[in-house]
Write a protein that binds this DNA or RNA. Structure first.
Lengths: 210, 210
DNA sequence: AGTAAAATCATGGAAAAAGGGGAGAAGACC
DNA sequence: GGTCTTCTCCCCTTTTTCCATGATTTTACT
């Protein structure tokens, strides 16, 4: 029985690459691909693969969120995260949301097959490179920010002062200051500059195509 | 006469994808690929393709720098930038360094072929999406920072104060302050927070796999 | 040798953030 | 009912940044 594999990635070239890597594997069945989260969910309502290879960055929502939704609705499907970046914060978030593995886009055919075969057995697969960098800074966990804190954080990065933020979201400047202090403590950062840097590194602010 | 195409990309899946997209094109000849800048340059000493598809992010040096080097040594080779991100700053830097086109990794086979055929004639190709986003903010050019300014910028993002930076790089705090002011004026940012944000967006600070 | 850009240093004052503390209200959870 | 988290608000002091302005030395290029 071939393993049914589905891909969610908005990069046509990557989808083609994976298809080409997997087409000669006889115990793998290519069931299709989606370019965004919505059409992935639509596909799953029709049929369910054994494994989904899921990009972290999707146009409509992050793979991290999609991973959670898929796992809630279809717990039997195993998900392997797919990304260009070997970044601890992504990987951790992805695994926290139920992914069973994480493969970089520079993985070889062999690595990809190892991952698929291992994950389908219910085990966890992390490529050497990934697990090494996870161990390297295993203390570096992602801080948990509240709704309001995230909101204030992005406004800070926009260059707004406490007073401006206060006016914008209709709270007093003191409250903004409190949120700011909590952010500095949680991240943890020594000042605004480092706070913004960490916000980028932990993906609280996106480096998108604006 | 088939167009000789060479790829420089460290993502195996992308290389495979492009190979698969081009293999049925009879007026395109696949001459090989390199996974980093060094082996690309080594290849070029042996033979020269007509076109290089070049990823922006390479492990040893940025595609932006590689583009410049290749164009200096082999001006007859046309280079098409390749990236996941539709980001104005990358694109501009790449074109400034002699690239003839820019294609996103979500491009279709058709778009890729259009790009190759157009560029080989000496014209410039930018995908619709890219040129649209270039026009959208054509005023938004990348600031030119001096060596010292870049140096101070990354230290600021590390969370260091003027005094700390001054001690670290053996100049007075006043000088650091001057650099800081020039940075704020050049970027342009209203304060440190926005400065760090723009530093990320313009790739003066890298969001890499630390 | 001459010029332009970059790097260096400074003063003084206004604005904002950092760091310390305390405290009440609303909701979720057990 | 009690506990926890979140969100809200305030006071005070110190540190740091922001802004304006001006100036000298070093380096790079023609």
């Amino acid at each position: 029985m071939a393993i049914k594999v589905f891909i969610v990635d908005d990069h046509y070239m990557v989808v083609e690459g994976i298809r080409s890597l997997l087409q000669n594997e006889k115990n793998v069945e290519w069931t299709g691909h989606a370019m965004n989260a919505d059409s992935c969910l639509a596909f799953l309502r029709q049929q369910q693969p054994d494994i989904i290879l899921m990009d972290i960055n999707l146009p409509d929502k992050s793979g991290i969120d999609l991973c959670k939704e898929v796992k809630e609705a279809y717990p039997q499907i195993f998900i392997i995260g797919l990304s260009t970046f070997n970044q601890q914060s992504f990987i951790q978030k992805m695994m926290d949301n139920g992914a069973s593995g994480y493969v970089l886009k520079n993985a070889t055919q062999q690595e990809l097959m190892e991952a698929i075969e291992m994950v389908v057995k219910g085990k966890t697969y992390l490529s050497d490179e990934v697990s090494r960098s996870l161990r390297r800074n295993e203390d570096d966990t992602i801080p948990v920010l509240t709704r309001r804190e995230k909101e204030v954080l992005v406004l800070i990065a926009e260059g707004m002062t406490n007073n401006e933020i206060a006016e914008k979201i209709f709270i007093s400047a003191s409250t903004v200051d409190t949120h700011r202090k909590n952010l500095l403590a949680k991240m943890p950062a020594r000042n605004t500059a480092e706070l913004v840097k960490l916000a980028f590194q932990h993906k609280f602010i996106k480096l998108d195509d604006k």
